[in-house]
Design a protein around this nucleic acid. Sequence first.
DNA 1: TTTAATTTTGTAATGATTACAATTGAGCAT
DNA 2: ATGCTCAATTGTAATCATTACAAAATTAAA
Lengths: 156, 156
Amino acid sequence: MITIEHIKKKLIEKGIKPTYPRVRIYQVLSDNGGHLTADFIFKEIRKDIPTASRTTVYNTLSSFVEVGLVDEILITGTEARYEIKRRNHHHFLCKKCGGIFDIDIKCPLAQGEYSRVRGHLIQEIHGYFKGICKDCLKKAELEREEHEKDDREVSE
Amino acid sequence: MITIEHIKKKLIEKGIKPTYPRVRIYQVLSDNGGHLTADFIFKEIRKDIPTASRTTVYNTLSSFVEVGLVDEILITGTEARYEIKRRNHHHFLCKKCGGIFDIDIKCPLAQGEYSRVRGHLIQEIHGYFKGICKDCLKKAELEREEHEKDDREVSE
DNA sequence: TTTAATTTTGTAATGATTACAATTGAGCAT
DNA sequence: ATGCTCAATTGTAATCATTACAAAATTAAA
Ligand SMILES: [Mn+2]
Ligand SMILES: [Mn+2]
Ligand SMILES: [Zn+2]
Ligand SMILES: [Zn+2]
């Protein structure tokens, strides 16, 4: 639970005027875990600011990303996800339920910031996995067992 | 330069009927290096098949990805890129020129296929960097030198 | 050749994001 | 307080990649 004052300070530090919509957008990002869509944030701040526009959400997120307050994550192919910048980490996208999970693994990729590869200047490092998440695996397992039971009953 | 026959064999192996548009799409992927957009492929096969439709390109790419012949790369946030599947490798996206480069680094990520992380079943591994590519760095450097010269001349 | 199944095509719809002009609001000078 | 200027916000329209879907064409089977 970050305080409004703390948020304001963070924005000012980065040269962003802490208007109410901007502070609220940061607060939504802070209070709802990571990997939020612009649409989720929009609906959330609409509760407080019924006149808020999608454009403001997009503009604000862009400037947050630009100054390095927020990371933009492109995994799903349909919509960008946003989360407050923290130590570099990877992600896992479940192809079944669409869930995105943080994966904290030690990886040479995520070591020194702003290094080089093959002469190219690195500014961002992204790593992610796709597959079936733990929960969906368990669910599938249970369903399989159900089917087996059904089959047994039918063949009786 | 892969032969048509070789392409046909590859498609059949994966259960895909090697129609002419499909073979051509695979050939375009094969002949033009990696990271192609659907639009590029569309325009390319239009040269041979003036009636070809975008839908066919999208459908074909989807089935290629589905059977594991092709990888879909989501880096730019605007359009998917496609390349024939090969040994797992990372990518570098230049924020200046938009170029995408292969980065072959040994990374624990890209080791065993179909492993697990935190109980989640891994089916795909993606890693990429964003920054300024070698060429764009050099170009910027040259421009900087030009400006310095200008400044000197002005102050003379 | 007739028929059925598959593939391709063309066009319309979708949906996230961006462009942009009009409106609002904050801060400052009168 | 009033008006002024600049920045922020809003609302709406445009963009653009991708998908949906039905009609037309092609292929394979009978
Ligand atoms: Mn995260
Ligand atoms: Mn590649
Ligand atoms: Zn899942
Ligand atoms: Zn470049």
